[in-house]
Amino acid sequence: MTPLLELAGVTKRFHAGTPSEAVALRNITLTLAAGDFVTVIGSNGAGKSTLLKTIAGMIAPDAGTISFDGRDITHLPVYRRAATIGRIAQDPGDSTCAAMTIEENLAMAERRGMPRGLRRAVTQTARARFVAALAPIGLGLESRLGIRVVALSGGQRQALALLMATLAGARLLLLDEHLAALDPRTADIVMDLTARVVAERALTTLMVTHKMQDAIRFGNRLIMMHAGAIILDVRDDAKAALTVEALVTRFHEVGSEMTEDRVLLTT
């Protein structure tokens, strides 16, 4: 079976050749099978966001290739990858359109990757679909289709963003600290929703998080990044056996030794 996503030797430097050069991705090789739910952890500046943005097409790698479902997508612009890749960023303002209504946002998301013409975007049947999609979230958004997204709380916006990312077509979901701006209770609600949606739609997922408990609790695989490299990659039983303490210890180790090797954690 071909993997869904394959990165081979992906490297990205910012400000190459200047004193402020930063190596954000160092020869990354990563393969995701369809259905993998991978949590991504790592210190600030480790390269997590750059990894997700490179997969989404927002950043062009300096070297290496990215293939999706067996097809080389390394040089495709964002909009030509969007049919199958959904992404949510940390800032609730980034993944929805504030000045437009909930139903307009959902209508745009429903046409993910499809041609857009002069068809009326928000029809009565579309509204019925949106209500059906929003109701299970349990935030009451289904009765507020016509209000503008700017009037929603951060948590409501991220929940909407999640729906928009998964409503149509997407097979790969990229979550870049999508809970970081939310209060703990709301973060838990949106995290549960995330797990539910990922399971229901059998989405292959990369989720960056700074919450170790979430990284351990959710998904079937965990990777740790440091200085642009993947330094830890555990899955299934080994992942289930991870503890927050073990991860924190590991964090501190790499903090001093700057290893570039991929180390498998043994318990």
Partner: peptide, 19 residues
């Protein structure tokens, strides 16, 4: 329309509509 919404969103949040 679908195209009209996309045009509006381009001015409001280009990254989002491209994605």
């Amino acid at each position: 329309t679908d195209l009209g919404l996309a045009v509006r969103a381009t001015g409001q949040n280009e990254t989002m509509i491209a994605s």
